[in-house]
């Protein structure tokens, strides 16, 4: 027992990373199950069991593989591998900016996979996903910049515990980040690239040509990503984890309500919207931090 404890202490970042790799998809799946139940309740339905995402993935893994070519499978695997890398780097307390880049490339792998097949729906979905990235990526970078301006480092492990919660210093960035989460979870009104609801328009967009185990790989990646996003939300109130969890829960509820209250809108609307309101929110928050730090804006 003591030997085990000593091992854990000595290899703390690695143990944390390994644990995160196992726990993250479970949390993600539970969140997704909860999401589907809550959505059903909002619509006056009963909804599926909480463990439905697990059932789905187990079923998908059991299906016979079919594909269009080899390339798309390579990209599905990279999509998952890079998202796992994001989880590992977060758990090891690595550089936030690098984590952001790796996260972006996980998404680019999915986009490239969708583009590698000669399927019109898949291509359209991919292009819309690129537009989504163009819409939210600058806001994520600004968020990370804001964190640097507060703590003077990108390295998560050097961020001091305690102190003033991030939410107090980055309230507007937090609001903009909520919109980013909405895009990332493919929720209305931003679910343009692949949607549970758009059967007729783009069928299933970017993931249409993935099926069976390959679709399962993408779904698992989505679970990791869901978990990562709400972990980041919780970190906005890091000094008290309970408050952080409450914050994440509120954000989660907000996403579901927004999804059910909105219709899907067009891609260009999304880009225009994201580059105006959330962008202005994020930029003004960052500008305020610069001014507070006493630097000039020039």
């Amino acid at each position: 027992m003591e030997a085990l404890l000593a091992f854990v202490v000595a290899w703390k970042p690695y143990v944390l990373a390994a644990a995160a790799l196992v726990v993250a998809p479970v949390i993600g799946a539970l969140l997704m199950g909860l999401d589907r139940i809550l959505t059903a309740r909002i619509q006056g339905r009963v909804g599926p069991p909480l463990l439905q995402p697990f059932y789905d993935i187990v079923k998908l893994l059991g299906k016979a593989p079919i594909a269009l070519n080899r390339v798309q499978v390579v990209y599905a695997c990279l999509h998952l591998a890079l998202m796992m890398l994001v989880v590992v780097l977060l758990a090891m307390g690595q550089d936030l900016m690098m984590i952001l880049f790796v996260h972006a490339f996980s998404n680019i792998a999915l986009i490239l996979g969708g583009m590698s097949v000669r399927s019109p729906y898949s291509r359209i979905g991919s292009q819309r996903q690129i537009m989504q990235m163009l819409a939210y990526e600058p806001i994520l970078v600004l968020m990370v910049v804001g964190i640097y301006l507060i703590f003077g480092t990108f390295q998560i492990s050097r961020i001091p515990a305690g102190g003033v919660p991030l939410l107090v210093q980055l309230p507007l960035v937090f609001l903009a980040f909520q919109m980013v989460i909405s895009i990332k979870l493919q929720k209305s009104p931003f679910d343009v690239s692949t949607s549970h609801h758009a059967h007729q328009e783009i069928v299933k967009g970017i993931t249409i040509e993935y099926s069976g185990p390959y679709l399962a790989v993408i779904e698992i990646t989505h679970l990791y990503e869901t978990c990562v996003l709400f972990t980041v939300v919780a970190l906005f109130w890091a000094p008290n984890p309970l408050v952080g969890l409450l914050l994440a829960a509120l954000s989660f509820l907000f996403q579901i309500v927004l999804d059910n209250a909105c219709a899907r809108l067009t891609t260009m609307w999304m880009l225009r919207y994201m580059w105006t309101l959330p962008m202005v929110l994020a930029v003004s928050n960052i500008a305020w931090l610069y001014l507070r730090n006493g630097a000039s804006l020039g």
Binding site: D56, Y121, V203, E209, S211, L215
Partner: peptide, 8 residues
């Protein structure tokens, strides 16, 4: 789930 395409 009503997926709307045969691949899924």
């Amino acid at each position: 789930l009503h997926v709307g395409n045969p691949k899924h």
